[in-house]
Amino acid sequence: MTEQAQQQSARRPASSGGMAWKSGLLGASLGAVLLGWGLLARDNAQPTAAPAPVQPQVIVLRVPVQNSLGRAQAVVTGQSLAQGQRTAVNIAPLPQRPLFQQPVTRTRGS
């Protein structure tokens, strides 16, 4: 064995111990990063993991024909197409006046 070879061989144990330390540090860092990513990914993934079905809402406004006395009633119905559920809410008469505030004419004996 040459002197140079002996010197290299003599340094190996010392070199080998330094690499292990570096590798350990690198692995720990990488693990921390991956753990962080994993945690973040888990938090972010929750809303998109099970997307809720879009349920279109149909609002039906039913306005009955007004009578001459202005007794109009409007009913707003919210209906979910997916569930078929129906809720009715009575609201005040629409702010529109009937065309005729009083009878146009009168029938009388002839």
């Binding site: 024909v65 007004q66 001459s68 009937p98 065309l99 005729f100 009083q102 009878p103 146009v104 004419t105 009168r106 029938t107 009388r108 004996g109």
Partner: peptide, 8 residues
Amino acid sequence: EPWPVAVQ
């Protein structure tokens, strides 16, 4: 809307 007509 219909024409309102009174009956006297």
